[in-house]
């Protein structure tokens, strides 16, 4: 446990270091880079940027200051919006979290469902599920997004095409994100269930007269839960990065589209903050998934 948390801290530090240090990798004086667009380069402005980033301090001091600020919620000021980055994030985060939440529910329910179906039915159903989900992973999300917009948004007019705010607006984006995840989750579910089904204790349960439905629920699926939960957790964690694409495709005002705009407008404080947020969330969720394992599998618990 302590080891895991230490590893978590080290990885977080390293990642934040990469994110912060990246500005120094840029060609030329960091101040020009951090100042963004070329037309802004008045001496006063450059001085302001220099002051904001404390560019005259040694590199490590700057990093420490930035990290300290980030931990206490001060992520600096956006060059583009002239606003606190933390406020920008706070305004955008709910919509992104709602999107990730909807997607997670969608792909967990459908993915596990399809996986169970494929494993239990076998034969043609199995082949169809495997083929369908493999096909689904082969189509990039932004293509899925545009196809869904064309069909359900414009042609059929069932869903709003752009913008966000309601669950209704989130449906197509969530479906887009879920399509890619579906294949991974259903494949892990199917594989894990097939492995569990072959175990002796399942035959023992069958020999004790338990119905097939109960065997699947109480033994096969229960035994397969570990890998399924891990995969769902990992996919959800990665989903934060996936929102970048989907929010851009659907014009949602979330953290992902904030990142794309920040990059296109050379708004580096915002870029850094969003990346730090996404990486932190990703690492936290993946660690959480590991910590949950002992709850699922008693064998992973340390002897008290």
């Amino acid at each position: 446990m302590a080891r895991k948390l230490a590893g978590l801290a080290v990885t977080l530090l390293a990642a934040s270091f990469v994110i912060f240090g990246a500005s120094y990798a840029a060609p030329g004086d960091p101040v020009t880079f951090l100042a963004g667009g070329k037309e802004n380069l008045t001496p006063e402005y450059l001085a302001a940027v220099r002051a904001q980033y404390h560019l005259d301090d040694p590199f490590l001091v700057q990093y420490g200051r930035w990290l300290g600020g980030a931990v206490s919620g001060d992520l600096g000021r956006s060059l583009q919006y002239n606003d606190q980055v933390a406020d920008l994030l706070a305004a955008r985060l709910p919509s992104t979290l709602a999107l990730v939440g909807c997607t997670a529910v969608l792909f967990t329910v459908l993915g596990v469902g399809l996986g169970v179906l494929a494993a239990v039915r076998g034969g043609r159903v199995d082949a169809a599920v495997v083929a369908g989900t493999t096909l689904a992973t082969s189509v990039p999300p932004f293509v899925v997004a545009t196809a869904l917009i064309s069909l359900f948004g414009v042609r059929l007019g069932w869903f709003p095409v752009m913008g966000g705010g309601s669950l209704w607006h989130l449906t197509l984006p969530a479906v887009t994100l879920a399509v890619g995840a579906l294949a991974v989750v259903s494949r892990v579910t199917r594989q894990s269930m097939i492995e569990q089904r072959e175990l002796d204790h399942v035959t023992v349960a069958r020999a004790s007269g338990l119905s097939e439905r109960l065997i699947v629920v109480r033994h096969v699926l229960r035994g397969a839960l570990g890998p399924i939960v891990t995969m769902c957790g990992l996919v959800t964690a990665g989903m934060l990065a996936g929102t970048v694409i989907v929010e851009a495709a659907f014009g949602l005002n979330g953290v992902g589209s904030l990142l794309v705009n920040a990059i296109n407008t050379h708004d580096f404080p915002v870029t850094q903050a969003v990346l730090l947020l996404m990486v932190t969330a990703y690492i936290l969720v993946t660690t959480l998934v590991e910590l949950v394992q002992p709850l699922i599998d008693p064998r992973a618990r340390r002897p008290a």
Binding site: L199, D200, H201, V204, H219, R222, G223, D297, P298, R299
Partner: peptide, 8 residues
Amino acid sequence: RSSLNPVR
């Protein structure tokens, strides 16, 4: 050992 479900 293999007759019992290890997680129950």
